[in-house]
């Protein structure tokens, strides 16, 4: 049996449903599928951007493109994850979501894992491993299908959504660039 990392042994992941989870192999990417869709187009686009960066990072590591390249992609992933979490949490506070504290705790959990890797990279005491990427992917699959879906249900019933039943389409250029550094 595959050795589990400290990351995948955590209570949060153990409480979650592991159905349908595929461990990454070197050729196994994290692809967007419709069943990952949530209530707002904007959040979907953000998730897609994160998956894309994740796949780039995975490719960079499995193809051994060098530490600098991987680090650069990793930093972009960290930055856009932070931006995405901040945005989601704003929408939760704004729409009085009762699941907000618990959802925020899950975000903090992932950010702590990421920060730990950042520290290791800074101190040159570790690297980004395939195990870490696997755990990261599992976390996202569980999180989007579970917690994000729960918030989605709440959001759909909120007054904010009712006032916006014809949500304006997000311009394609904005869709493509929201996570990029400027």
């Amino acid at each position: 049996m595959r050795q589990r990392t400290a990351f995948s042994r955590t209570p949060f992941l153990c409480r979650n449903n592991f159905r349908g989870i595929l461990l990454l192999t070197t050729s196994n990417l994290f692809l967007w599928t419709e069943d990952l869709s949530v209530a707002t187009q904007q959040v979907d686009e953000q998730h897609k951007g994160l998956l894309d960066l994740f796949n780039q990072l995975h490719a960079s590591i499995s193809e051994k493109r060098g530490n600098d390249t991987s680090r650069e992609i990793f930093e972009a992933l960290v930055e856009s994850t932070r931006l995405h979490f901040l945005f989601e949490e704003s929408m939760m506070r704004l729409t009085h979501y009762v699941g907000y504290p618990a959802h925020k705790t899950q975000h903090e959990f992932l950010m702590e894992q990421i920060c730990a890797v950042q520290t290791k990279l800074d101190n040159e005491t570790g690297e980004i491993t395939i195990d870490f990427l696997n755990s990261h992917k599992i976390w996202w699959e569980n999180h989007i299908r579970g917690s994000d879906r729960d918030f989605s249900v709440h959001y759909e019933q909120s007054e904010l959504n009712k006032s916006a039943d014809h949500e304006n389409a997000i311009a394609s250029e904005e869709r493509a660039t929201w996570w990029k550094f400027w």
């Binding site: 932070r82 009085h96 504290p101 925020k104 903090e108 920060c115 007054e159």
Partner: peptide, 25 residues
């Protein structure tokens, strides 16, 4: 005017969470 006045203020629960949570960013 859009009828979203109910969301003008945070709930008490949100206020409390914002006070006691640690901020990793």
């Amino acid at each position: 005017k859009a009828g979203l006045g109910q969301y003008a203020a945070w709930t008490k629960e949100v206020e409390q969470t914002m006070k006691k949570k640690k901020w990793w960013w």
